[in-house]
């Protein structure tokens, strides 16, 4: 049995999606697979969280979507990062690194 996937830290899903799409456009399953793979199965995203997040991001203009055919010649909806999305990702990354560093300092201090 693989270890149980960890729950995503609150609010990080959006950032992970943006990061995943920064490399190349992907469809829904592709995104969840990529997150799973890169995190080495630490994170797994189920469709019930993934699709609402995609809708939200698309509504706020960070993503756009189009129907394309897959490598297996099926139709699927691909999500692409917009310029706004790229900017949002960069700022989220900065913010995240700052927080991580801060948390790390706190944890070290207590030891």
């Amino acid at each position: 049995m693989p270890p149980r996937p960890a729950a995503l830290v609150q609010g990080t899903l959006d950032m992970l999606i943006l990061k995943t799409l920064d490399l190349e456009p992907l469809h829904g399953y592709g995104i969840s697979l990529r997150i799973e793979q890169i995190s080495q199965r630490v994170f797994r995203v189920n469709p019930g969280s993934l699709f609402p997040a995609l809708t939200r991001l698309e509504r706020s203009g960070l993503l756009r979507s189009e129907w394309r055919s897959t490598e297996n010649h099926r139709r699927a909806r691909y999500y692409l990062l917009t310029d706004r999305g790229r900017k949002a990702l960069a700022s989220e990354k900065r913010e995240w690194s700052k927080q991580i560093a801060a948390i790390a300092r706190i944890l070290e201090a207590t030891q």
């Binding site: 399953y29 592709g30 469709p47 297996n72 099926r74 699927a76 909806r77």
Partner: peptide
């Protein structure tokens, strides 16, 4: 219909994997 399509595509991709 669009949501149905998208979810079906997800299922198919997942099953194929």
């Amino acid at each position: 219909r669009e949501m149905d399509d998208e979810l079906r595509a997800y299922l198919e991709a997942s099953a194929e994997a």
